[in-house]
Design a protein around this nucleic acid. Sequence first.
DNA 1: GTCTATAGCTTGATAGAC
DNA 2: GTCTATCAAGCTATAGAC
Lengths: 223, 223
Amino acid sequence: MLKFKYGDGVIKKDKQTTRERILDAAEELFAHKGYEGVSIRQIMAKAEADVSLAYYHFKSKRDLFNEIMLRRVEILNDIRLKALEAVEERHPGNAPSVEEIIDAFTHPLLDLLAREHEEWKYYFQLIAHINNSPDWGGELMTRYFDPLVRRFLEALKKALPDCDDADLYWSYHFLSGALTLTFAETGRLDNLSGGAAKSSDMASVVDRMPKFLAAGFERLCKK
Amino acid sequence: MLKFKYGDGVIKKDKQTTRERILDAAEELFAHKGYEGVSIRQIMAKAEADVSLAYYHFKSKRDLFNEIMLRRVEILNDIRLKALEAVEERHPGNAPSVEEIIDAFTHPLLDLLAREHEEWKYYFQLIAHINNSPDWGGELMTRYFDPLVRRFLEALKKALPDCDDADLYWSYHFLSGALTLTFAETGRLDNLSGGAAKSSDMASVVDRMPKFLAAGFERLCKK
DNA sequence: GTCTATAGCTTGATAGAC
DNA sequence: GTCTATCAAGCTATAGAC
């Protein structure tokens, strides 16, 4: 840990604690290689700290992973719930449009990713990874996101009162796939489009996504 | 390798070669844990063959992975191209609808997965994994699927002549995310819906997906 | 094609000094 | 909180007998 001396001899630590540096390093590596593709040694090398400190701050590799997930999830669910409530308050008495509801679900995330890219990029990539993992997707996405998702589905049900349950759930599933692939920022879109669209360009996707997805919900749900 | 004796003493080997058993075992394990989450020893234990045989049949772990990808990709791209050509032949002179084109892109895969589930399930899960990997998604999806995807995008451009290029590419990106998450069969949808929709129920998604996605393309692209 | 044996290295995790 | 040292296990890959 670097230390800096100031004027009167007060010792001030580097602004990040070791624990935070470990979490940051692990988050980035897990996002790229997956949980099992990364070793504690690689994490601690990146965090510039000794291997044994991983076990001082976290009781195991799996525990470290869980802490990474928990560190940011509450912030995300909080801003999305607030966005939904704000939309609902703008339409007292009747339901907001499907596009407005989906915008409340996706916009806060894409906006956060656009504005604080370095801070959030790897966390979102990790979520993309987990959402598409046959081993972990079912359990972890359910645990961390289902309460919020159910709240959004209720709102969508009011906007689409005649919608069949299965149509609504499948529509949400398509939304989820589109959203998390966008998080992954694989560069594939850049290759495919020859530069006409960029995987990392959140500003250019933030308006397109709710439009695209709302149209899907409406076509599947309306009789 | 098991051997069976028949009537006149002819010795017939088990129908699968060792090489195929290795490919099958590795495909399943890679689909679940990712490339780096699986060891050659785990693969060969599942394949019920000696570790050294992995290196006899394949020159390295990475080469084994490449062979897994190659083994099935041509079949997929072939049936999808044929499906597109069949749709185009049904509309001589003018363009097929967006929904018909997307159906030709998705239906063959979902149908294959529905009909030969055990044969294809793990390969599709592996593709879901790769598509969402920041490390591999850009390179591998481009290598294996871009020629076919470009062919489909040309067809879509004819069906949506006023569509902005960026809108078209982003629409395809949303399609890709929805499709590959469906491949992943994580069970998350089952949890969320309380059983009203099942991740593995390809018959119930095969009609919904083209409808949903075509609506998205059309809304983003039409002026 | 299949086996045994092994080289050389990395893994997750811990004990114990400071 | 941070370090050194270490363990037992597992890792990719190869050499060589049959």
